[in-house]
Simulated scan of single mutants.
Amino acid sequence: MNFWVSALLGAVVSVVTSFVPLSPVIGGGVAGYLHAGSREDGLRVGAASGVIAAIPVVLLVALIFGGIGFFTIVENAVGATVFFAGLLMLATLLVVALSAGLSAVGGYLGVYVREETGRGNGARRRGDDVDTDTSI
């Protein structure tokens, strides 16, 4: 499946399951499973899925801190404006890094599951890595 379609579907799953703890891992896993590439590709598509899934949260955080920051501008409190702007940047960075990181782990696991179930390209099945040579 296309990289961006897989990432978008994984992001939708992350947002829909947001009430579940570690939901970015689930969304990243879906993206990695659907993308059907290597494990490194799973990391990439999972991270992209996490960044896309973080957009609604970042918008909500920006709305909250932006609203508070707007009142500090109206009151002409430069120090408070700088404080809330810094807090907004820190919160945005934290949300995106956490979502992308957890989704990347999920993408890796999604590709792993696809390989173990035998649906991946050149998938390794259980027992393939066992040495069957019994000669001494």
Rank of each mutant, 00 (worst) to 15 (best):
G101D: 04
I26R: 13
G29I: 03
S135E: 01
Y112C: 00
V5G: 05
V111C: 05
L60H: 03
T17V: 12
V130K: 04
G79E: 10
R44M: 15
I136E: 12
I55W: 04
I136R: 11
V16G: 04
A48C: 14
R44L: 15
G69W: 02
N2L: 02
G27M: 13
T92V: 11
V20S: 11
I73Q: 05
L63H: 11
G101A: 06
E40V: 15
Y33R: 09
G101W: 05
T132Y: 03
L90A: 14
L93V: 08
R39K: 15
G67E: 09
F19M: 11
I73D: 01
R124I: 09
P21Q: 15
I64M: 07
V78T: 03
Y108L: 05
H35D: 10
A85C: 00
T132I: 00
L88E: 11
N76V: 00
G46K: 14
S49N: 05
L9I: 10
G110F: 01
V74H: 00
L59I: 06
V61G: 04
D128K: 02
N2G: 11
L94F: 10
G120S: 15
A62M: 11
V16Q: 09
G127R: 06
N121R: 13
G69F: 00
E115L: 01
V95G: 02
G29W: 02
I68L: 08
F70P: 00
L63F: 06
N121Y: 14
A47V: 14
Y33L: 14
P56M: 09
V61R: 07
A36I: 12
T81H: 03
V30P: 09
A97L: 15
G86I: 00
I52Y: 06
G10D: 02
L8G: 09
V45F: 08
L94N: 06
F71Y: 04
V96H: 06
S6E: 05
L59P: 02
S23T: 10
L98H: 08
L60A: 02
D131Q: 04
V96R: 11
I136L: 02
G120M: 06
A48K: 08
S38P: 12
G79H: 04
L94M: 09
F65C: 04
L59C: 08
V20R: 12
V57S: 11
L88T: 09
V111A: 00
V58I: 13
R44P: 03
L87E: 06
R124L: 14
T92G: 12
V57P: 02
R124D: 06
E75T: 02
W4D: 05
I68G: 01
V20W: 15
G50Q: 10
I64Q: 08
V51F: 14
V13Q: 11
L98R: 10
V13S: 05
S49M: 07
G27F: 12
A7G: 07
L102S: 06
T132D: 00
A97S: 07
V5T: 04
G110W: 10
V12R: 12
H35N: 15
P56H: 01
G86E: 10
G50C: 10
A104Q: 07
E40K: 15
T117V: 13
F3D: 03
E40A: 14
G107V: 06
A36K: 15
A62S: 13
P24I: 09
G122W: 10
V12I: 15
D131Y: 06
G69T: 00
V5C: 02
L34F: 15
S38Q: 13
A104M: 07
S135C: 00
F3N: 01
S49K: 11
R119G: 05
